[in-house]
Design a protein around this nucleic acid. Sequence first.
DNA 1: TTGAAAGCGCTACCAT
DNA 2: ATGGTAGCGCTTTCAA
Lengths: 342, 342
Amino acid sequence: MLNGKATRKDVAALAGVSEATVSFALSGKRYVSDELKNRVVNAANELGYYPDLIARAMCEKRTNSLAVLTNDLESPLQMKMIKSIEEAAMTKDFFVNICGGTMKLDRYVNNLISRHIDGVFLAGDPYAITGKHMNMLIDNNISVCLGTVSEFMDQRVCGVGMDFTEGMKLIIEHLKNLGHSKIAYLSAFDENQKGDVRLAGFVRYMKECLGQNDPMYVVGKPPYHSTVGVGYELCSELIRRKTPFTAIVCTNDMMAFGAISALQENGLTVPGDVSVVGIDDIMFAKDFYPSLTTLSHRVEYFGGMVFRALYENIQDKGKVMREIVEPELIVRSSTAPPKHNS
Amino acid sequence: MLNGKATRKDVAALAGVSEATVSFALSGKRYVSDELKNRVVNAANELGYYPDLIARAMCEKRTNSLAVLTNDLESPLQMKMIKSIEEAAMTKDFFVNICGGTMKLDRYVNNLISRHIDGVFLAGDPYAITGKHMNMLIDNNISVCLGTVSEFMDQRVCGVGMDFTEGMKLIIEHLKNLGHSKIAYLSAFDENQKGDVRLAGFVRYMKECLGQNDPMYVVGKPPYHSTVGVGYELCSELIRRKTPFTAIVCTNDMMAFGAISALQENGLTVPGDVSVVGIDDIMFAKDFYPSLTTLSHRVEYFGGMVFRALYENIQDKGKVMREIVEPELIVRSSTAPPKHNS
DNA sequence: TTGAAAGCGCTACCAT
DNA sequence: ATGGTAGCGCTTTCAA
């Protein structure tokens, strides 16, 4: 444990073997007799030797590191996702860099390339990253994974997506099973927003499950934020419409929190008078009052898949994984059967 | 723009100069005549040349990268902090790695060293990181910054801390100015928890500002979580005590949200019947209903300071910055004058 | 003012 | 089964 900078040379000298043998004994990439291996391992331990990953990266043109590029580092969902990616990455000794602010994309992309980052997960808005940037990354041998899956994706990029359509089905079936039929949807996005399939799923399953052709919903407007505040606004709007409803589904959990506030301010209790369902299962969902019934994307699993997609593509550019993670409905206490008089 | 891997050699060849001149022309570390410099710059542009940062790191024994070590990647406060550190870092082309899970500390520390990460910010619980790990980092020339400042800190580590004492003063003065005197504090921690100076600050300023020797407070118990749920519990306990109060201060914003829920469930409105103040100014504080009056640590500034402390220490191990960031009270709509009959 | 070349610590190929 | 060593792309010292 000299002064913390033992090199392979020192180990070789102490063990009385060649430098090559040190590498091979430690990596196992070539057979080394037990005796020499022992001497090397002991010498390495004695000196507190760890291979210099920068030097290794220089030879291998690989750094064992990823980056997550996102424009919304404060979003609870993204954080959870980053956390789970990082956890999966660490099992293979990959480090994870975070790149917030999709504004400075050029700068990030240059850095990613110059630093020989092996793979990138593009969280945030997929439309914010241009084809030019994607090509630069891929041309420089960096694996790319998108947080979505579509047939129009570049054939060389991986994708892990969420199944909101199936999710909507789970939500509506849950509410139906509780006895609800007057269900409203609060959408942060309007019909013009491609990319958000939640509203379409809602419409579809209100028809398929409940036979309703004209379900209730309130839509947001540009810039399409899905915050607590927007949930409050949209729910207030819903209440003003005076159309009776016994359950509300929201674009995400934060909007659900806002909706609950609006209901309470109007003297309606949750789930007594109205059941509320969110989407995302963010950290607060479980210990909010009332705890929120919400659609989970199983983010831990999701993050693991993202890492796996990237990892496999790094090992073999031929493997381009495309995976849709099936959601799971987490039933908590914001949903209950409707009142009889409703 | 060959196939994305022009090297310095290529630039030198194209410009008709030596490789050394390429480096110097681009870095400006040595005078290069205007003519040669131009030829180099043009050649570099033409080839799409960017220096290989891994090769550079190998020479310089520096990677221009930091890591944030934290045990709670999902905490909104930490996220905001990481975001602001990353933003500051990017202004100097530093990359930021995230290391969640303080459990695998050995593994992270080894990686940090092997990868020649230049500096580390220890977010999370400072007591979770052992002296052994800190010494390993410092002995290996890695700068360390703690999210706290105390006189007992290792002389070689930087620190950027929050001034909760001053913060409590701001909070209590604000409530006093509104006309409150029956103020209660909901603490996630109890008196046994050193490190949390909020309760002490509360007691102190209830006396100094309001002349009260025995202020109301409810404390948490191990494992001392400060979640929405705990806020709800502690507030419920406060209500059960039947001691009249017109304002509540909470350990953090999440507890404040829980407290507000508990109040509302007991038929008390915020801020009509009770004013509530949080601490941290997390993302949700501003668009919660009601929007939360809370103590901001000015996290953007805080993160900038953390980066600066690390950056300066990296350049010069002699510079060990210790900075206390002064808080700021963000007055929103969860506080108002007390009712007359209270 | 500019060029040549010695490293940095490792991987992996070529010898033995 | 093991050793020697070229080479990765750069920074920087030493020469010219």
